[in-house]
Each structure stands twice: as structure tokens, then as C-alpha cells.
Design a protein around this nucleic acid. Sequence first.
DNA 1: GTGATTTTGTTCTCCTGTTCACAAACTCCT
DNA 2: AGGAGTTTGTGAACAGGAGAACAAAATCAC
Lengths: 221, 221
Amino acid sequence: MTARTSNDTAREIPEATVARLPVYLRALSTLSEAGTTVCSSEDLAAAAGVNSAKLRKDLSYLGSYGTRGVGYDVDYLRYQIAREMGATRDWPVVIVGIGNLGHALANYSGFRSRGFRVVALLDADGQRHGEVVAGVVVRAFDDLRSIVREHGVAIGVIATPAAAAQDVADQMVDAGITSILNFAPTVLSVGPHVAVSKVDLSKELQVLAYHEQRKATQEPA
Amino acid sequence: MTARTSNDTAREIPEATVARLPVYLRALSTLSEAGTTVCSSEDLAAAAGVNSAKLRKDLSYLGSYGTRGVGYDVDYLRYQIAREMGATRDWPVVIVGIGNLGHALANYSGFRSRGFRVVALLDADGQRHGEVVAGVVVRAFDDLRSIVREHGVAIGVIATPAAAAQDVADQMVDAGITSILNFAPTVLSVGPHVAVSKVDLSKELQVLAYHEQRKATQEPA
DNA sequence: GTGATTTTGTTCTCCTGTTCACAAACTCCT
DNA sequence: AGGAGTTTGTGAACAGGAGAACAAAATCAC
């Protein structure tokens, strides 16, 4: 009996690869919905917007899920990536700050379809309590601790103004949350065992503007 | 007369550095609002959440704007970075797709304060036309071309469902837009002279879930 | 069964980005 | 003025990721 692709050892998947796996997952879903059952690395790379050599190398970190001369079974590969990413599990999530962005996030179907379940919406503003957004009642921020305990929440999303973000983060960590996705435009400081990821809505726009400006000043012809 | 720091030559700023400049800009604004007039690379690095050596190297690509033994003048450095990034200019922007996310983006103050001015909100749904969001009237998608011409729009934001995104992108390019920020969960294909940047709201969450899962399976003790 | 063809998985090389470490340059104190 | 103490800017070593190229392994035609 050979070792197969069973993964007792902690295979180190490079961070850059991990960041691309969600993209592959999305591309595979699209292919699957279009009725494609098998695809080559070339096909999938095109659908994901990357180089095919890079795609194959990325997938090789997970194991050998393709067949030489044939390609990849779309649904099988999709399942394997989803399992590796933890997308086959159910991840209870708390969103704090139900302004415009919080609304958008609560209603975002991409969360639910990727295994994320919004178990609570919290806001410091008492005016909002009781309001129902995306089928979930907005509750007081003070309920955080009990909600985290009750549902075993590990992941919190911050969609508050910048001024409130650090305090929210502190209380999230205190309540037992170990991963935070921060949409507020501020740098959070947390303990070393807490993972923080940041999405800056205007950052990408600024990078685009930079390149626009360069184009303009570079070719004055 | 020496050459000073005048920048006739096209200094190549590494992409990784460009991506961090908006973060430094934000940190400098925060410091400035707090009344800080001078800061060391250590201070600014802490505020921006990066290593101080990296910060100094990043800034060195722009020029020598610090003073040894002293540090950086907050407002002066802020202006220099802003100028380099094109944030001292006015950038007219069009947002297409006024759902939850489009609403949030239209209301996002971070755009305006970084030099971006939303000149039009467009939606394919006739029901929404005439609605006023963030002081701007929602108009028909067909008006795109004339708006781009009139305001000299170079940057477009796509906040539509995935299914509509490619068509919107095609028409944006056709209308003369050369930079696109895509919030729709799909890979856009455009010509080589068009810059596309993508923000995937659920991607970061998936990466966090991956690390959570690893933590859980790694330490079963 | 054998050879031609396809496509994966992987090795090797190159390049970008990060970090260290230190000389250069400035201020402050005496 | 001169020395002690700071802090920047940068050269050099190091790490990590990207892409080319190819061997291994599968299918297909006959």
C-alpha cells in the first residue's frame, strides 16, 4: 500500500499560492456551471487569468489531482481545493458595523456560497437594533461575547468607521475571535496569535491612478 | 546648480512599493491629524504596520525627503507621496452597478478625500434611474459614452453582478476608459492597454478560513 | 502492442522583493 | 568647535515566487 496523497505531514503551501486558490475555485465553479466536466491547465489558467505553468505548480502543492494527457476533472478538483481551503466546512461569521458597507457584506451571496454563514450583525448605534438585514436581526455590540461563545465564531468582520475599529478588534479578540477581516481604513494592532487581513477599498483605485498618471506623463507626445 | 530631486528620468518604482504608498499616505494623514509634525521611519512604519527598513527603502525610490538624525516632516512627506501617486489631482470616476456595494462605494468618503470624484452612477435597471445616491443621480448605462467624453473619465468602477461585468467592461473600454476597478467576482478580459484591478470581497475571508483550518488541524493536542 | 500525441508534475534558472547592517549626515550638548 | 547620539539612505546578502523547459505518464490510432 503506497502512501497515496494522504496528508499527514504539514505540506507547506506558499502564501502566494493560497491567495490564488480562491480564484481557481471560482473559475472551476464557473466551468462546472457551464457543463464542463474536464479541463486542461491551459483552460483553467485562462478562466482564472493566470499563467498555466503557475497554475500547475500551485496545484502540485495540493497533490496530484490531474491526469497526464487528459487534464483535470472539474468537480473533483473543485472539491479537493475546497476541502484544502476549508470551504467544505461551515464558518460562522460576525459582522460589526452595519453601515453601507456592512449592508453590502451581509447581503453578499459570495460569502454564503463559500461556506461562510453570517450568524450575527452588530452595531453600536441603538437606532439600528432590531432592523433586519439579509434575514438577520441587527443586535447590540455588547452581545458579541455571548454570540461568539454560542456559535463558536472564529472569524469576525469589521465594517465600522476607522475610529471604532481598534476597539472592536480588541473586544473581538477578547471574546475569542482569532481571525479578523478589516474593512476599516486603519491598521489594527492585535496579539501574535490573531490573524488580521485588510481590504482597502480605495487602495486599488489609488494604484490605478498612479499608473494612469505615469502613462500621461510618460508619453507627452 | 545640481539636479536636485527633480524627476525627469522615469524612476522605476517597484510594484510592491506602489501598493504600499497608499498605506503610508493614510498613516501620514492620521499622524498629521493627531498634530504630529515630524516622525521617524520607526514611527511611521509602526503606524503603517510595516518594517521600518522596508519603509525607508520604499521612500528612497521617491527621493530623499527625510533628514538624517531627525526624521520626516509629516506634511511635506505626505504631499510628496500624494503628488507621486497622483492624489493631488482630481480623478473623475464612474461607478456602474448601484446595488448594495455600489451604494457603499458611492458613499465611501475615502474616495473623495483621495482625489476621486464620482461624476456618475449608472445602472442597467430602469427602476433605479433618477434615484439620488450620495448626491449623484443614477442614470442609464447607455449614457456612459457621453459622460466619459464630457468629464474626461479615465477610471471606471464595476460593482455589477458577475454576469454583467464583462459586457460593462467592454463598453467602458469602448467609451475610452483605460483603468477599471472590478468588484464583480469574475475575470475580465480586456486589451493590453487597459489596466484592470480586482477586489474580491470573499477572497480574503477564504484565506483566513484556510489558516484557521490549518491551526485547528495542526494542533490537535 | 507500438508509436504518436497530449498534458501533467517538477526541476532549474531568473528576477523581484525583503531584511540586515552600516556609512553618511544631521542635531544637541558642552 | 568638537564629540556623542540619532536617524536616514543604501549596498549587499538572502528568501521567495515566476516562468521556461522538459521528463513522466496517460490516451488514441492502427
